[in-house]
């Protein structure tokens, strides 16, 4: 395939993904906005108004970046895991596999679908947060880099889950039992510096801590962990996930006999 053919094939997957996200917007875009709105009301306004500032910022200002990141992570992951597994289950994936598209274009296409949904949801949750507080942007470049890299990372993770999933249970186990606890314990609602030293160290093994803090740094200029560590963890995991996916697709694990 020529570069132009490759681009058309890649664009086709993205077009298809975005059309699906928009077509079922009440399932893909609306729930994160409602959930985040409730977090802003309950934790940000009702409870947060009674809490002291954290590093000079009100509690709601502190949790907004983490809540945006939480929805980006969930949306990017669930998009790729569900669309890839659905394509496998209905065998529509076979139509991609019999085409001359190389495996890396299929990976890039599904990943980009997840990234786009994550970013659209992130923008919507950000817009919702403006009804409850005013936000400052400390460093726009860090902010954009953190959210894009995180969306890429969790789109890839969702795709790996989709490759291994053998049933609809298989696509919900990781989000419910792994992703949700890690997200809630990843410093979305609190600063890990306030934890006892033992739990501070345990928290450092949670990759979501680095994503939330990098993103928070972009907004507020504060972070519980050094910024370089945040991006080192994000990029390191991204390379590992890409390597794993490359291997799985080359071997056809989970979808080629």
């Amino acid at each position: 395939m020529t570069p132009s053919h490759l681009w058309t094939a890649y664009y086709t997957i993205i077009y298809h993904e975005v059309a699906r996200i928009v077509r079922i917007w009440s399932q893909t875009l609306l729930p994160p906005v409602i959930t985040s709105g409730l977090y802003f009301i309950v934790f940000g306004t009702f409870i947060g108004s009674q809490l002291p500032p954290i590093n000079g910022f009100s509690y709601i200002q502190f949790i907004v970046p983490g809540l945006i990141m939480m929805q980006v992570i969930t949306s990017a992951y669930s998009n790729t895991v569900s669309t890839f597994y659905f394509a496998k289950w209905t065998k529509t994936l076979d139509e991609m596999l019999v085409s001359p598209m190389p495996e890396w274009v299929i990976i890039a296409g599904f990943m980009s679908g997840g990234v786009l949904r994550g970013l659209i949801v992130g923008a919507l949750v950000l817009a919702t947060s403006l009804f409850f507080t005013h936000l400052v942007i400390f460093n726009a470049f860090i902010l954009v880099a953190a959210i894009v890299v995180t969306a890429v990372l969790f789109s890839l993770a969702g795709l790996i889950n989709g490759v291994f999933a053998k049933g609809f249970d298989g696509i919900s186990i990781v989000p419910v039992f792994v992703l949700t606890p890690l997200t809630y314990l990843g410093g979305v609602f609190y600063s890990v510096s306030r934890l006892p030293p033992f739990w501070q160290h345990v928290s450092l093994f949670n990759p979501i801590l680095y994503m939330v803090n990098a993103f928070r740094f972009g907004f507020l200029g504060i972070s519980d962990v050094p910024l370089w560590q945040c991006f080192a963890v994000l990029l390191g995991l991204m390379i590992i996930f890409l390597g794993v996916l490359g291997y799985l697709f080359k071997r056809g694990v989970g979808f080629r006999q």
Binding site: M1, T2, S4, H5, L6, T8, A9, Y11, T12, I13, Y15, H16, A19, E95, M96, S99, P100, M101
Partner: peptide
């Protein structure tokens, strides 16, 4: 129509 056109896209057909 979308099913057919999407398939063409996988083969690099705009």
């Amino acid at each position: 129509i979308d099913i057919v056109v999407t398939q063409a896209g996988y083969y690099g057909m705009p």
